[in-house]
């Protein structure tokens, strides 16, 4: 059920805190940057890490899905946003909106927003495929004992209930209930008993879970917890790079390097402002570099 698959490379061997920090930093930077070059840098860095983690084939589908939304964003922005001084062409007159003008500024802005969306979707692709949900939940179990237990239990119950649904559906089919033929109303009506049966059996099971928890002494005293994940040098390298990239990113935003003015007229691209982007690129693709060395250099693999 879970799409996560353990793979043999450095990205999977990082501490969950490190990977989560990486994802958080890229998310934060993608939201505070508006300069197209800086956004592209984020895209390439995340892309390098995803490829290093061996999930390029999955990433393709995410990019495909994202490109559809990006096209929609560009269309909506360039049609509805009438700001901007460089008019590319005038569209037809629409009753309520009046005459539509498509401006260069609106197209550029929406393209940059498109890159931002692609970065965000890619970083969530990395999260979905490279981080085990249980490891993340364990991190938080120190702070939220009950809430995390609820989510962990529900995550475990999900595949179980999917099996239940399949089983009950099959039984209904064997009994001659028509689930796939007939009118829409008929099909809906025939599927309702499946939900009811699954609800009843799940509630019974929840009672058993509660009794089992009770028997094991849940809530009888202060709760103990342990962590099996090790901190290794590689985590400190990556965390150090993250600190550098956050510092550079904030500096770039405060100096207006990573901020781009789209309206009313596109700002001139100043190449001096792009130095910080290079640092960002190097710092954020460090996991990919480390993985490359990890694969080819036995000594490095031993040391980190």
């Amino acid at each position: 059920m879970l799409v996560y698959r353990e793979k043999d490379n450095l990205i999977y061997k990082l501490h969950p805190v490190t990977v989560m920090s990486y994802i958080a930093v890229v998310l934060l930077l993608s939201l505070i940057f508006s300069h197209p070059v800086y956004l592209l840098v984020l895209f390439f860095a995340v892309g390098a890490v995803i490829i290093a983690s061996g999930n390029a084939d999955k990433w393709k589908y995410y990019l495909l899905m994202a490109s559809g939304i990006v096209v929609m964003i560009i269309l909506v922005n360039s049609v509805f946003v009438q700001n901007g001084s460089t008019v590319l062409f005038y569209g037809p007159a629409i009753p309520v909106m009046g005459k539509i003008k498509v401006t260069l500024e609106a197209v550029c802005f929406s393209a940059a927003m498109g890159i931002r969306l692609v970065v965000i979707i890619s970083v969530f692709c990395l999260y979905t495929y490279a981080v085990h949900p249980d490891k993340v939940l364990k991190l938080f179990s120190r702070f939220g004992k009950k809430a995390v237990l609820v989510v962990t239990l529900a995550t475990r119950l999900f595949p179980l209930m999917v099996q239940d649904v399949r089983r009950v559906t099959e039984v209904q089919r064997c009994r001659g209930v028509k689930l796939d033929t007939g009118s829409l109303r008929q099909r809906l009506k025939n599927r309702l008993p499946v939900v009811k049966v699954v609800l009843l059996s799940s509630l019974e099971r929840s009672m058993q879970i509660a009794e089992s928890m009770h028997a094991r002494g849940y809530g009888s005293g202060p709760r103990s917890f342990y962590s099996r994940d090790l901190w290794r040098p590689r985590d400190f390298f990556v965390l150090g790079a993250l600190v550098v990239s956050v510092m550079t990113g904030l500096a770039a935003v405060f100096h207006d390097w990573a901020v781009f003015t789209y309206y009313p007229r596109l700002e001139n691209m100043n190449f001096k402002e792009l130095n910080a982007a290079l640092i960002e690129m190097l710092a954020l693709s460090l996991p990919a570099f480390l993985n490359w060395g990890w694969k080819r250099w036995q000594l490095l693999k031993l040391k980190i």
């Binding site: 004992k145 009950k146 237990l149 609820v150 989510v151 239990l153 529900a154 995550t155 119950l157 999900f158 179980l160 209930m161 999917v162 239940d164 649904v165 559906t169 796939d180 829409l184 099909r187 809906l188 599927r191 499946v194 939900v195 699954v198 609800l199 799940s202 509630l203 099971r205 929840s206 009672m207 879970i209 509660a210 009794e211 928890m213 009770h214 849940y218 809530g219």
Partner: peptide, 26 residues
């Protein structure tokens, strides 16, 4: 901490999530 409450919330949450499946086909 009430074990019954936790088990119930987890069950209903999972049930609500799973319930997307049988009707997705319809």
């Amino acid at each position: 901490a009430a074990s019954k409450e936790i088990a119930l919330i987890a069950t209903m949450a999972s049930f609500a999530a799973v319930s997307r499946i049988p009707f997705a086909a319809v």
